[in-house]
Design a protein around this nucleic acid. Structure first.
Length: 202
DNA sequence: TTAACGATGAGC
DNA sequence: CTCATCGTTAAG
């Protein structure tokens, strides 16, 4: 389990360092996990794409103002949850959106959570589709708003090193679906593992 | 109170 | 490309 210090670092550093690590959610039925393959940084007060832009502080984004290493889960488009990792010391409202995972553990549970179907009923394309997007991975790992504010350094939701991590290259691009955010829309704050099959888009 | 709007995904 | 779907937000 990654410790508090990790999350206190610069948010762009955390965004890159999270790639290759493993997001784990232990539920009453199973331990579901995946390798983080795509992230986006949201840099708070100075970043027009961030929920905390210009010091905006509401009940929804309150956890962003707390210390790093806590979970920020919000509801979007009337149907989906998105999972973020809060970074930096209390008072600095920054976070990293986890955009895609490579399924690792309990694929069976992911299949049921995403498609209400047995794993044996899924083809190769369905498997690739399990966790290749922020809303999808939350469904697959059973992460919703009840997970908002959890301490990633001491709960059933946490991030750990990958025991068998291979080398990879990191690609950075502009972030997805933030065209409304003027000058911030082209900031290169999206990071993903080059050539990984589970990245949300090319 | 209320209306406009998404850090998305699925289906053509 | 279109649109389903509803909590959150900021304005009134």
């Amino acid at each position: 389990m990654l410790k508090r210090d990790f999350y206190m670092q610069d948010t762009l550093t955390v965004s890159r360092e999270l790639l290759g690590k493993v997001l784990v959610h232990k539920t009453s039925e199973s331990t579901i996990s995946g390798i983080i393959v795509e992230t986006e940084a949201y840099l708070g007060a100075e970043d027009k794409a961030a929920h905390s832009y210009n010091g905006r502080r509401t009940a929804r984004n309150e956890v962003m103002y707390g210390p790093g290493g806590f979970s920020y889960v919000y509801f979007i488009y009337g149907m989906y949850d998105c999972f973020n990792v809060v970074t930096q010391p209390a008072g600095t409202a920054q976070a990293v959106l986890i955009r895609a995972l490579e399924p690792l553990q309990s694929l069976e549970a992911m299949s049921v959570n995403r498609f209400s179907r047995d794993l044996t009923a899924l083809n190769k394309k369905d498997i690739k589709n399990l966790t290749n997007g922020p809303g999808k991975l939350c469904r697959a790992l059973n992460i919703d708003r009840s997970c908002n504010g959890l301490d990633l350094c001491g709960s059933s939701l946490y991030i750990e090193e990958n025991a068998v991590q291979e080398d990879f290259e990191i690609v950075s691009t502009k972030r997805i679906n933030i065209d409304y955010s003027e000058e911030a829309k082209d900031f290169p704050y999206r990071f993903y593992i080059k050539n990984n099959l589970y990245v949300s888009r090319k």
